[in-house]
Write a protein that binds this DNA or RNA. Structure first.
Lengths: 334, 334
DNA sequence: CTGAAAGCGCTAACAA
DNA sequence: TTGTTAGCGCTTTCAG
């Protein structure tokens, strides 16, 4: 069997409650006793029983992470970051892949809630109302990652700024007619990125070609979008994210259009593969792991100091930055 | 507060233990009582308390997954598969990223063990001895994924066969001098893949150029390996995995060597991006999600019917298959 | 500062 | 088939 506090107590010659106090951060024990208890616990290989502790404290020692799709390296990296930070804070991380489905996302929240101390909800597809309904569904704190919504603590990246930077970069290279291939219309992320693009278009410095939206994975109609870009006469294109950018480049290459010679391409996210592609992708870098760690930190902050009714929770916005690599080039003179 | 079995019991007019029995799969209750209990539980919104249940049963309701690196899409996909299957079986999945470090992997096992009912250990870097020492370290069952070792249940892919297929494909295209860029020398996976390559070399049908090993991520010295391949006079190259293949192609492109016109490249794993790259990558497809699900299934099987001393546990080997895409072509006549 | 006692929510003997 | 009883390992009052 496993070593319990009773055995540690017996070894030291104190009561179980004293051992418990010595092991608890805020316990009122004399330094001497604490030392002896700690030494004995260590020697006997004592490991606290999470279930027993959780039964009393109500804490599970785990945090939940819900992502739309682990296959997307963007979320895999978020998972890695969240996992590392959670473990660093003495908690384990339970992942749940919502498969980009609102229903499954709700299910995931429902099943996860009782098993964790709090949830990091990544790139949630839920409507503002559904999100609001969460308060009644579970008392467990929820932190939004890559989604901002009033009433919720959140960590996001400044995507609008990133998109503006991308267009500015293209403009500086001489491009004027620039296409934007957007992401799934309904998502917060897509709206946020589109906002940055539109802001730039408003200035009149560029001639924006809006190419509708595609699903952010390979079979999301990217081929068709690429053809539309080609037909539009644009000399550069900004994609919703790196994956879409890769799809675009693939189609361009197949059609004999060279990147960056004939067409400049900018992605977004800066997933690991972007630097290794041929050509390496110019992209808007998002601090994926950092954001995930920040979300976990924010969750723990909420755990320690519960939210105050009526007070707007903290919303962190992390900066993005453009990484110029080989998929963009100066507009060739014609 | 939360709804307990006592309130359900009171509502139905039975004892708490009857409620417990009605809720337990093997419980001996009359169908009528079970129905009434279930109805009441549902109506009151009863949710079993995992901690309380776990305190008695010793079960945590979670399974652990340890991977070398979530950034590698290969493992992200394994995580996705394992997560889905675990949840389907009513368990949650706790992930732990070992950062390709033996020490961290051991730590991960140690910290994970008490929090889960069993562990899926993916592509373990541990030596056979260290693996063996696990039996003493924890009584929790461990299933190996993408690693085979006597005494452990495991799920692996037939990598050797896959590599042989890749070389056969290249041979059929007319290539004779073929390079192999291996992975981290010490790992089981690298040895397994190398075995397939060497088996083919033994037949004498091809002229194998062994280019040493690189770390399976972008900055793993791939550039140097690519140059060695170029200098060797090989007309085709098989890479340890898709990521290495991408790195190779990137370097080839930078040096003006066209793929597949001047050089054919075959990867391994078939990560999602492979089909979307330019050119799309010919690769040995490994059933990543399937293998992960199988590993979770095997873990549950072990949980239900504990391993018998002296009896060799089940080792499943899943088939791989070559996916021919655009990065390989017939050897040009010279 | 420390010990005794109670009990978190649930399951598992053991009776009935 | 059901109820009673005990207790999993731990924290937390409450006394001392």
């Amino acid at each position: 069997m496993q070593v319990t506090i009773r055995e540690v107590a017996k070894a030291v010659g104190v009561s179980p409650s004293t051992v418990s106090r010595a092991l608890t951060p805020g316990g009122t024990v004399s330094a001497a006793t604490r030392d002896r208890v700690l030494a004995a616990a260590d020697r006997l290989g004592y490991q606290p029983n999470r279930a027993a502790r959780g039964l009393i404290t109500g804490r599970t020692g785990a945090v939940g992470l819900i992502v739309p799709d682990l296959l997307n390296p963007f979320f895999a990296e978020a998972c890695k970051g969240a996992q590392a930070r959670a473990r660093g804070l003495g908690h384990s991380l339970i992942v749940s892949d919502a498969e980009r489905d609102e229903g499954l996302e709700m299910d995931a929240i429902r099943t996860l809630a009782p098993e964790v101390d709090g949830i990091v909800l990544t790139a949630s597809q839920l409507s503002a109302e559904e999100l609001g309904s969460l308060r009644g569904l579970t008392a467990k704190p929820v932190v939004l990652l890559h989604r901002r919504e009033p009433g919720f603590p959140s960590v996001t990246a400044d995507l609008a700024e990133g998109m503006t930077d991308a267009l500015t970069h293209l403009h500086a290279l001489g491009h004027r007619r620039i296409a934007y291939v957007g992401g799934p219309r309904s998502t917060w992320e897509a709206r946020e990125r589109a906002a940055g693009v539109e802001a730039m278009a408003q200035t009149g410095t560029i001639d924006l070609v809006r190419v509708g939206s595609v699903a952010p994975h390979f079979d999301g109609g990217i081929t068709g979008a690429a053809d539309v870009v080609l037909a539009s006469g644009a000399t550069a294109v900004v994609a919703f994210n790196d994956i879409v950018a890769f799809g675009l480049i693939s189609r361009f290459t197949a059609r004999g259009v060279r990147v960056p010679d004939d067409m400049s391409v900018v992605g977004c996210d800066d997933i690991a593969l972007s630097g290794m592609a041929a050509p390496p992708l110019t992209t808007v870098s998002v601090p994926k792991a950092h954001a995930a760690r920040a979300a976990v930190d924010l969750l723990f902050r909420t755990l320690r100091t519960p939210e105050v009714e009526g007070e707007e929770p903290l919303q962190r916005v992390l900066p993005t930055h453009l990484v110029v690599r080989g998929s963009t080039a100066a507009l060739a003179a014609h």
